[in-house]
């Protein structure tokens, strides 16, 4: 038995699992606060709820350093091109969390000013319901995204 075991500790895994594990453990969200949900997003990152537990406390000001966009709030027609540009500037692989009712579906504002769901502009991975979703809801959405990444393939 001692002859067959290589020296030292050894972990066996696939490249895919290792890459996915690394991706979930160091997600950098872009600071993309729009409205009420942005305050809850900040509260999630602050001390009480502490998003740092999931390696996500570093909100990146530049989209080029971020791989997760949390669309926190209502997206107006005027903001839509900006949002798309920020998304395009993010390097692959990238994910989008649609936070709150307004970002997901337009929420209670079915009028001339709002984009009725951010999925009309960018592909959305996770929808977090609520108006605004509490920090627990956002964290649940983020953890669901982690599961999704872990179960997915490397090449998207």
């Amino acid at each position: 038995m001692a002859n067959t075991t290589p020296p030292g500790n050894l972990l066996m895994t696939t490249v895919e699992k290792a890459a996915n594990w690394a991706r979930t453990r160091s997600m950098f969200p872009a600071t993309f606060g729009l409205a009420c949900c942005a305050i809850e997003m900040m509260a999630t990152g602050a001390g009480h709820y502490d998003l740092a537990r999931f390696g996500m406390e570093v909100f990146r000001a530049s989209p080029r350093q971020a791989d997760l966009m949390i669309v926190a709030g209502r997206v107006s027609q005027k903001m839509a091109p900006v949002l798309r540009q920020v998304y395009d500037q993010m390097p692959d692989p990238k994910w989008v969390v649609s936070m709150g009712a307004c970002a997901s579906s337009g929420g209670m504002f079915n009028n001339y000013a709002l984009v009725q769901g951010v999925d009309q502009i960018v592909p959305v991975d996770i929808y977090v319901p609520g108006c605004p979703p509490g920090p627990q809801s956002l964290m649940h959405g983020v953890l669901t995204l982690h599961d999704k990444i872990m179960s997915g393939e490397i090449v998207r």
Partner: peptide, 8 residues
Amino acid sequence: YLHTGMEK
């Protein structure tokens, strides 16, 4: 950039 048409 956050005009929501709330008054309407």
